[in-house]
Simulated scan of single mutants.
Amino acid sequence: MLKGIDHRLNSELLGALRAMGHGDTIVLVDRNFPSFSVAKNTIHGTPLFMENLSAAVVAKAILSVMPLDNFVEDYAVAMEVVGAPDETPDVQKEVEAVLKAAEGSDKALSKVERFSFYEAAKNAYAIVQTGETRFYGCFIFKKGVIAPDQVFEA
């Protein structure tokens, strides 16, 4: 255990989050997402796992250590519901609430069509498969920066 770090963040995921740079993306996906076939195209190359945890719990854990690039419109993206692009399922409402709390913002999640989401996921740094069982529990987060005054100096 480490002080100040969510115990659910495993060493492999922490390593990936640390290695990501400004503008890199990480994709959180539900249990139905084709994580292995999509992850082979990512920088990391294989999926990371946070099984038995909901998308909102995983988002909260990741955002406890990773800043978002809130200078761009698409810093947090969800997969659109097929045939109902204006619909916002409960899983997306929960993750949006986590985002708003982490960022202190009222900005809504952007949404992209299902196959566009798959293509964007292939260009990500890593795929994180959650234990989310509900449909459309798929999100892309773009990493931001940490200001000089936020860096811990010994």
Rank of each mutant, 00 (worst) to 15 (best):
L109A: 01
F152E: 14
R31I: 15
E94W: 01
I146T: 14
A19L: 14
A55D: 06
Q92C: 00
Y75T: 02
K107F: 07
G23D: 02
V128T: 03
E51F: 11
V91L: 03
F49D: 10
V91W: 02
I5E: 06
P47V: 09
F49C: 13
A84F: 12
E113V: 12
N41Q: 12
G23L: 07
L2D: 14
E51H: 14
P47A: 06
K40D: 05
Y75E: 03
K111T: 03
V95E: 00
V72C: 07
V57S: 14
A55C: 11
G15K: 05
T133W: 06
L48A: 03
F141P: 05
T130D: 10
T25K: 10
I127E: 03
A16Q: 07
E96V: 00
N52S: 14
K100S: 00
H22S: 08
F141R: 02
A154I: 11
Y75H: 10
G45K: 05
G137F: 04
A76Q: 01
L13P: 08
E80D: 12
V29Q: 00
N52R: 15
E51G: 10
E12N: 10
V58F: 07
R18S: 15
E87T: 11
G137K: 04
N10M: 08
D24N: 12
L17C: 10
E96R: 01
M79T: 04
D24A: 07
E87L: 13
M66T: 06
Q150D: 11
A121L: 05
D24E: 10
G4C: 09
K40I: 13
I62A: 04
M50S: 09
P89D: 05
S64H: 06
T25N: 10
I62Y: 09
A56H: 05
L53N: 11
A97V: 00
L68V: 10
D106P: 00
R31T: 14
P67Q: 01
A55P: 07
F33Y: 12
K60V: 02
V128D: 06
F141I: 04
E153L: 15
K122L: 09
I26A: 06
V77E: 04
I62T: 04
S11D: 13
A147P: 07
A19Q: 11
V65F: 04
E119W: 05
E12L: 11
F117K: 09
A56Q: 04
L9G: 01
M20K: 03
E51D: 12
A108M: 05
A97G: 02
C138N: 15
V98C: 02
Q92F: 01
S116K: 15
A84W: 08
E132T: 03
A126E: 09
V38H: 04
R134Y: 08
I140V: 10
A84V: 06
A154S: 14
A97R: 01
D106L: 00
G15R: 06
N123V: 05
V151H: 06
Q92E: 00
A39V: 09
T130K: 03
